[in-house]
Design a protein around this nucleic acid. Structure first.
Lengths: 210, 210
DNA sequence: GTATGTTTCAAACAGGTGTTTAAAGCGCTC
DNA sequence: GAGCGCTTTAAACACCTGTTTGAAACATAC
């Protein structure tokens, strides 16, 4: 009871602080004092700071991975063909619904994902790939029938271009929105940005050189 | 003589190490020992670690900014209309030529850019925006006649989707290439990836909701 | 050759880091 | 109520961080 409380408080604080500042820039003392727990609690419950970082990701990715797996199962069972846009919508739905439809938490998630790619000295990326590579590969291979003209290579790179566009724009959503608002006075709610992003991606993914 | 030597050695080491590990994860002791200079040299020549980080970016961006400005000048003087693909090619040429056509250095540059967005607690992003906002806005506004159907808002977001795709895929080029190679055994030279990227971007940027 | 201004150097500084320790506190069963 | 396992606590650990210092080395000009 008390244990679960402490663990969750640490995870909540760590998640928010990591997303805000990055891993190395966030000390255990900042995390534990934000979470109102003792400094030693992190090492007691998680073992190390590295393990805490991984735990934050697991808490984020586990429900997403489950939701996505289930959805892919039903798609496969039903056997009806999915267009590219259908598959993109499915992914967006999985990502947002996996965390209670809280778009801000989705932005946090994107920020963490971006940090995982840029900040980790390998250990995180390897860990995530080992743990969630199957689901992501499964999703990507479902794109194949939706884009029959693409070679494997083109499909691989195009999906990662799309991932980059999504991760970058959503993880920096606040800063970009502020920038755009400074320049033009216009507002862009995140839902609208996601719609634009989907249009951008769905135009780019089917493109091939061959 | 000796000064310029020391300064350059520090900048070279810092640039490579920052791109590899990030700012917070790279200590001055690592930088100075890699550069074979005394630890105090950084604070003597640059003043602080923050100032060193900025100097690394300035050395990267100053030639790019100059090259791009010149090219935009000639485009404006000639007055001939530029298609989207022309403008994209122009940008790629400016980025690569600004650093002696060394594609690896371009990848480093992208990695630093990505770090500037994710790792900085504001100071770096503000500094870069203040210093290079004019050129980048000028370039973006040149896209306007090439995409007349786009609203300002659509143009803003689409260009940042494109920036995200570019920054993400090129800054993680090594890791992505290794990943793809593991799975399929295929190689993707960086020049080919850039070509694919340009196709992806040029399909996505003109898309609009309106 | 002496004086001057710049650069290098080893050493120390104060402060922050992740982690460990041993004692204290707690809830539980017997 | 004693005993036991789990959790929390304050303190200390050893180490690493960016920065500063004052003396030494250097190059240059008179």
């Amino acid at each position: 009871m008390a244990q679960k409380d402490t663990v969750d408080r640490i995870l909540n604080a760590a998640e928010a602080l990591f997303a805000e500042r990055g891993f190395a820039e966030t000390s255990l003392r900042t995390i534990t004092s934000t979470a109102n727990v003792n400094l030693a609690a992190v090492n007691y419950h998680f073992g190390s700071k590295k393990a805490l970082i991984q735990a934050v990701f697991v808490r984020f990715l586990e429900p997403l991975s489950d939701t996505l797996s289930d959805q892919l199962d039903t798609v496969e069972e039903e056997g009806k063909e999915m267009l590219l846009d259908d598959l993109l919508d499915l992914l967006v739905a999985a990502v947002t619904s996996a965390h209670g439809n809280d778009v801000n938490r989705t932005a946090s998630f994107m920020r963490l994902l971006s940090l995982a790619y840029t900040q980790s000295q390998g250990h995180l990326r390897d860990y995530l790939r080992e743990r969630y590579g199957r689901v992501s590969n499964r999703y990507i291979s479902m794109l194949r029938p939706a884009c029959p003209q693409l070679s494997d290579k083109a499909l691989f790179w195009n999906t990662h271009f799309a991932l980059g566009a999504a991760v970058f724009s959503l993880s920096n959503y606040d800063a970009l929105q502020a920038m755009h608002n400074d320049d033009t006075g216009e507002e862009s709610p995140i839902r609208e940005v996601i719609k634009r992003l989907l249009g951008f991606i769905s135009a780019g993914v089917p493109v091939t050189l061959e």
